[in-house]
């Protein structure tokens, strides 16, 4: 446990003499108690997965979704305080819609991460609020297609500022993780929640292309790895449900949309994950 704040930890936005905001650190503790969430960015898309702990036998199976669609091409999963996560998603949807209203084009994953990072950060600035008790993983596929803007009048400039640069490509799969402090980074593989350490160790073993840009997992392989990692990160004593979504490009299985992984594929991925777990037990 990190040191206790001796008076400097009783209100948000207060710096301790060594420059820490304890309330933000405590918010991170709330995240670390939540079910594991992961995101994988591969060559042709993004996969999001979450371990939903079954807190009661009376819960309706698979009725309570944890991964939200924020815009057609954007998905968000989070670990920590679930009501805070729902607030985060409400805001993310507002941002995505406002962006479309203003710019007549869908918000890019990077821009959404920036907006939401700023929003989270604002909740560390004032004593009148508390930080978010969540870490959110934002996945998206920004269109690579040559697209005119919605409601565009005229063709616009063909080169230079606001125009096209020959040979330059844009869009693709992106993954970001936003912490309670508002800090965010882009990732190839992201993990948060209780099992994050085990999950990170597994993610690091994967071939996700990386900065070197070597061969990377396909989207379907990534789905299977995501399921396996959630199973690895899971604490065996408790029951859980696996929820997974994915986003591909226009030429992929989801046609650029954020969607739930089809039941058949998810079940196959879970079967393989269980098999891998048993294999490990025998070793």
């Amino acid at each position: 446990m990190t040191s206790i704040g001796t008076g400097y930890d009783l209100a948000n936005s207060i710096f301790s003499p060594d420059g820490r905001n304890f309330q933000v650190e405590y918010a991170v503790k709330a995240v670390e108690n939540g079910g594991t969430s992961i995101g994988i960015r591969c060559k042709d898309g993004v996969v999001l997965a979450v371990e939903k702990l079954v807190t009661s036998k009376l819960l309706k199976p698979s009725a309570n979704k944890r991964i939200a669609t924020v815009d057609r091409h954007l998905g968000v999963v989070y670990s920590g305080m679930i009501p805070d996560g729902r607030h985060f998603i409400d805001r993310a949807r507002d941002e995505a819609r406002a962006w479309r209203d203003t710019f007549k084009t869908p918000i890019s994953t990077a821009d959404l991460a920036s907006r939401m990072g700023g929003y989270m950060q604002a909740y560390t600035l004032y004593q009148s609020v508390r930080p978010f008790g969540i870490t959110a993983i934002v996945g998206g596929f920004d269109s690579t297609a040559e697209a005119t803007v919605d409601g565009e009048v005229g063709a616009g400039p063909s080169c230079g500022a606001g125009g096209k640069v020959a040979g330059k490509t844009h869009g693709g799969p992106f993954l970001y993780m936003i912490e309670p402090s508002g800090l965010y980074w882009g990732y190839y593989g992201a993990a948060t929640g209780k099992g994050r350490q085990a999950a990170k160790a597994e993610l690091e073993k994967l071939d996700l292309g990386g900065p070197a840009g070597g061969p990377a997992l396909t989207l379907e392989e990534a789905v299977k790895e995501a399921a396996r990692i959630i199973y690895v990160a899971h604490d065996d004593d408790k029951e859980f449900e696996l929820e997974m979504t994915w986003i591909s490009g226009l030429d992929g299985p989801t046609k650029g949309l954020h969607q739930e992984v089809p039941k058949a594929l998810r079940e196959e991925a879970e079967r393989l994950a269980k098999k891998a777990q048993e294999g490990k037990m025998e070793e």
């Binding site: 991170v28 709330a30 508390r130 008790g133």
Partner: peptide
């Protein structure tokens, strides 16, 4: 304890009393 006065204070364990 010191952390249960209001709903904007996290306890060191990340709880809101």
């Amino acid at each position: 304890n010191n952390y249960d006065n209001d709903s904007v204070t996290f306890s060191p364990q990340g709880r809101i009393f």
